[in-house]
């Protein structure tokens, strides 16, 4: 399968945190979610991939051939934005358009105006402009999204785009992802990070799970849903089921967690309820398992 990015052993050393080695793939033509708790290293990884932060070692291969993020032809193909303070706070829609137009070769003013209208942000060509600092967090994020989507790119990389958005705006964001992917069928990809996948489930094709600076699981969502099962059971049989489960929480009334699908038959004999997990349930299970391992 074609890859938008192949991450080959990237590491980053800080005084108090180490990322990697990260080996992962961002498939081309799909939306990939980078899922992990706060402090898992999602932002560091995204920043490295977009040339915002330097890496200590390793390499990333973009679009099957390019490896130098300082190459402008690569930077132009990637549409990146962070969630907090992406632009100086005294900037307006107009300043953003002026700056973006020079900062990238593919910024389209007309499209920016159209997206601003769609996101109800105002008119970037209007005389009277509102400074970013006067906007709510949600509208700031919408502004960043309008700016990055106004560029004709092949890969969107968004750091926590949904966290400050209200439910309606999240729905719109999911629509924007699908529209972006569909506009050039199979040639465009999306990578976004989130610590809460619940509202983004139906816009996620591929998932990469991170904890403590490491990738702990990755794959296409449909495949992961076949690999893992969601298990519920009565507290009475918890002791018997626990060794077969990957993550486990419970009390004397009931327990739940995820397990590998290959253990489904065995767990069924203990009279447990077995279901296909949602991506949200899967995330909780996988991340909880990582926490349990870290505590050991």
């Amino acid at each position: 399968m074609k890859k938008a990015i192949e991450i080959k052993g990237i590491t980053k050393e800080y005084k108090d945190f180490t990322l990697g080695e990260v080996h992962a793939e961002i498939p081309c033509g799909f939306a990939t979610a980078l899922i992990g708790a706060n402090g898992a290293g999602k932002t560091t990884l995204i920043d490295i991939l977009c040339g915002v932060t330097g890496k200590t070692s390793g390499e990333a291969e973009y679009f099957g051939s390019m490896t130098d993020i300082d190459d402008d032809s690569l930077r132009n193909r990637i549409g990146y934005c962070s969630s907090a303070n992406f632009f100086p706070m005294d900037w307006t829609l107009k300043t953003i358009a002026n700056s973006m137009e020079l900062g990238f070769d593919n910024f389209d003013r007309a499209r920016f105006a159209e997206l601003c209208k769609r996101f109800k942000l105002g008119d970037p060509a209007a005389k009277k402009q509102k400074k970013l600092m006067k906007l709510s967090d949600g509208n700031k994020m919408r502004t960043y999204l309008a700016a990055v989507l106004a560029r004709d790119t092949e890969l969107l990389v968004l750091d926590e785009p949904a966290s400050s958005l209200d439910p309606l705006a999240r729905d719109l964001l999911c629509d924007m992802f699908r529209e972006y992917l569909s506009e050039r069928d199979g040639e465009r990809s999306v990578l976004f990070s989130t610590h809460n996948i619940a509202d983004m489930e139906f816009a996620t094709d591929h998932a990469i799970f991170m904890a403590h600076g490491q990738v702990i699981e990755q794959g296409f969502v449909e495949d992961l849903k076949q690999k893992y099962i969601l298990v519920h059971g009565d507290g009475m049989i918890a002791d018997k089921a626990k060794p077969l489960m990957l993550s486990f929480t419970g009390n004397k009334t009931s327990f739940e967690g995820i397990a590998l699908a290959e253990n489904a038959e065995m767990l069924r004999t203990y009279d447990t309820a077995i279901e296909t997990p949602t991506l949200q349930q899967l995330s909780v299970g996988i991340l909880r398992k990582a926490e349990e391992n870290a505590e050991k």
């Binding site: 930077r75 990637i78 990146y80 303070n85 992406f86």
Partner: peptide, 19 residues
């Protein structure tokens, strides 16, 4: 600075450090 508003944007534009 990178941690200040705009810092990450400036590091993502074409030309990078040259700009």
């Amino acid at each position: 600075e990178k941690k200040l508003p705009g810092g990450k944007f400036f590091r993502s534009v074409k030309g990078g450090f040259d700009t």
